[in-house]
Amino acid sequence: MSADSTGLTTVPAIRALPKAEVHVHLEGAIELADLLEAAREARVRLPGPAATLFDVASHDDPPHPSPLSAFLRFLDWEGALFSSAEQLERLAYRFAARQSASGIVYADVIVNPAHWPSWRSDPAALFDALGAGFDAAAADGLCRVRTCASILRTWDAATAEDLVSAVVARRPRALVGVSVDGDERVSGRTGGRFRGAFQAAGRAGLRRTAHAGESSGPEGVRDAIDLLGAERIDHGVRAVEDPRLVDRLADEQIAVGVCPTSNLALGLFRRLEDHPVDALARAGVRVTVNTDDPAALGTRLEAEWALCAAAFGWDDARILRLARDSHLASFATDDERASALARLQEREEAAA
């Protein structure tokens, strides 16, 4: 196939493909209208003008040492606006609706209780309320969404293990896995610290993913695999610096959840053409392209795919592979994955 024959590299065509998204944070996907509504309900002043609310650096006082650290503090502010289960259910439903508008039929969404102060003492209740909204959305035919409970990289081992214990004991609806996120540059290597928490999650049947290879180098990716048992790597782009690690990712089919616009925004790469997403895919790594924090970054999944297609000359076959790999990398059930792949096959046959 080629881009000229079916045009699968355009934004409308990509939107029409049944896709999965595996690296997106709920905290970074809350739209401006939802934040303004929640701020009014909480009677909380905005940290800056509404029109530039996502320009975190413009209202970060005192300044933080890195753009990511400043952004994480902004997430703390917005998470504090949501104190009722009803608000969380509404937020979850709207997230699923926006995913559906991008042609996403399944999503693993990352949620870090550290950013939700009203729920830190009972994280299982946070995930249960979100799960109720996601289940309601699925019942209405919208995107199926499941959550990954994320450990903040600056936590100690006991706090991480407490989170895992809490969600394992209650097993909130829609919870599928655990994650770890935060600023690698500030916290350094943390694989050993969270090994116990991830092992407990694995024993309980939860899936495991981890942020690594973003501001850390290849060693962060190796730690995530060897110490945390990560089945998928969020970001993982700096694995490209170690050819042996790239071969391992390809051989073991450990997917990477790449977020090009996010990486450019944080200055990891100067231009999209410099980004290693294409090199990783050509090396046989199961690459997925995702949004990370779509509201804050002003992006949508179909736009991310189209940008990569234009930058790297991806044709229709490459886009279809990207769609297939998105489902293979997801934590969907076997039946959900098979159904999505069958729909994708039908789309491919219709375009042939």
Rank of each mutant, 00 (worst) to 15 (best):
L142C: 12
A114Y: 15
A157R: 04
P117N: 11
F127N: 10
A136Y: 04
V109D: 01
P113L: 05
A132S: 10
A114V: 14
W155D: 13
F127E: 13
A107L: 06
L142N: 02
A107D: 05
R153G: 01
F134C: 11
S118R: 06
A129P: 07
C143D: 08
A149H: 10
R146Q: 02
A107P: 07
L142I: 06
P113G: 03
G133V: 03
S118A: 13
A114W: 09
W119T: 05
D156F: 12
T159L: 14
H115K: 12
L130E: 07
G141D: 15
T159M: 11
W155A: 12
V111D: 01
A157T: 14
A124Y: 00
W119S: 05
A139F: 12
G133H: 11
L142P: 05
A129T: 07
V145D: 06
S118E: 04
I151A: 02
A124L: 00
G141N: 14
F134M: 12
A149V: 05
D122P: 08
G141K: 14
P113K: 12
A129K: 04
A125F: 04
A132W: 10
Y106H: 05
I151N: 04
W155C: 11
A138M: 14
Y106N: 03
D140W: 11
L152R: 06
D122Q: 04
A125Q: 07
D128H: 08
W119H: 03
S118H: 08
T147L: 10
G131D: 08
V109W: 01
P123I: 04
S118T: 02
A139T: 14
Y106R: 08
R153L: 09
S150N: 02
A124D: 00
F134Y: 15
C143K: 08
S118M: 02
R144F: 09
L130T: 11
H115T: 05
A157W: 10
V145H: 10
A139W: 09
D108R: 01
L152Y: 06
L130S: 09
D156S: 14
A124N: 00
D140A: 15
S150W: 01
V145W: 07
S150M: 06
A132T: 08
D156P: 06
A139L: 13
F134L: 14
N112V: 06
R146K: 05
S150T: 05
C148F: 03
A139K: 08
A125C: 02
W119R: 07
D108H: 02
W119P: 04
A137S: 11
S118C: 03
Y106V: 02
V109N: 02
I151K: 01
I151R: 01
D122G: 01
S121C: 13
Y106F: 12
L142E: 09
W119V: 01
A107R: 01
T147M: 13
D128G: 15
R120I: 03
A136F: 07
G141E: 15
A157I: 11
W119A: 02
L152V: 10
P113Y: 13
V111S: 01
S150Y: 00
A149R: 05
I110V: 15
P117T: 03
T147H: 03
S121Q: 15
V111F: 01
A132R: 08
R146G: 00
S121D: 15
A129Y: 02
A114D: 13
G131F: 04
F127D: 02
I151E: 00
T147Y: 05
A138Q: 14
A157Y: 04
A136E: 08
S150H: 03
D156A: 15
